[in-house]
Design a protein around this nucleic acid. Structure first.
Lengths: 183, 183
DNA sequence: TTAACTACACCGTCTGGACGGTATAGTTAT
DNA sequence: ATAACTATACCGTCCAGACGGTGTAGTTAA
């Protein structure tokens, strides 16, 4: 009568996490199924049970980004400091699930994965709209690109990231710039 | 005695161009030696005659970027409109040799190619210095990142690029933003 | 209430193909 | 005569994916 629920697929999430980590750390090229399975502590067969092929793994990763981006967008819209400031702040790599997911998908887009690129375009447009409401349409792109540039550069400094203090000073500079653009 | 000079190496440049094109269009993963040779209209043996292995091909590509970036930096320093405005303008994907070279190397950096990443850091720092002299150190990073963000986004719109008019309008907006930051 | 059965969640091995690279013998342009 | 190729065959490695299992939690029927 009671719970006749099937066993929980613990491996599934482990695999998705491992795939993201590998994308971030070593790029798409080296994020092979074997490497993902090993990192996840799962057999290759187990991996393929959940994701019949690599494309399915990618699809699931994109779906996760969609979900997290949706949540982030809601937080951005509700941020008391304003959408623009929130955006700049959150463009600093801070190792949140959203950050990891975003950078991971960046790696896929880089490898010319069309679907990944499309998701980016949508998310970027949503960010742009919110920033436009905050600082005015004329300056929105300037702010959006400042944040993107920050992200873009932070990505190269792989691993545990560099000097946190320097990074913070950088964000403060950018926030000052945003204030000057506002109007 | 005279004219017994060897034939000119026409294939070499063709191979380098083809490698760049493939990096941009399909990413590092798909830029295989076979694909490069085919695109260049050269036999695989001919490719390997000039570049004994893939790493040599990459090295030559990085050296080309160094050369082009050096020229670009000189032009930026001498630009009558100022370094910052020049930088923003040139961040628009315009299919120049420098642009192609830069994006191609981006693809390599993405795949965690350390050498490629180092070159980027150097070029970025040089740009930052010039922009700082133009708009002041406090706002330099804001401008640099605006340009980077523009580049970052333009990269996703692969192929023959989108609407040129929209892009131009975008650059004008960014230039207006730069003027507001100046001081 | 327990043996038989089912469905799910995995594991480990194998194969076919692609890719980087080697080798070699011949061809073209200067 | 020699550098600059073409053409083709081949090797070792790696990878995606297929495949045939195994263990176990829940279900059913006597």
């Amino acid at each position: 009568m009671m719970g006749s629920m099937p066993r929980k697929p613990v491996a599934r999430d482990a695999v998705l996490d491992a795939f993201e980590e590998l994308l971030i750390d070593v790029g798409e090229r080296a994020a092979t199924l074997d490497a993902v399975a090993k990192r996840a502590g799962v057999s290759k067969g187990g991996l393929l049970y959940h994701f019949p092929n690599k494309e399915a793994l990618i699809t699931a990763t994109l779906e996760r980004l969609d979900r997290l981006a949706g949540e982030d967008l809601a937080a951005m819209a509700a941020a008391p400091e304003g959408a623009a400031a929130y955006f700049i702040r959150s463009s600093l790599w801070s190792d949140t699930p959203m950050d990891r997911s975003f950078v991971a998908v960046t790696r896929l887009a880089e490898v010319a994965h069309e679907d990944a690129r499309r998701r980016f375009a949508v998310i970027q447009q949503q960010w742009l709209d919110l920033i436009g409401k905050d600082v005015g349409a004329a300056m929105a792109k300037a702010v959006l690109y400042m944040g993107d540039g920050l992200y873009f550069n932070a990505m190269w400094e792989s691993g545990p990231s560099g000097n946190a203090g320097d990074r913070q000073a950088e964000v403060d500079e950018l926030l000052a710039a945003v204030e000057r653009l506002r109007g």
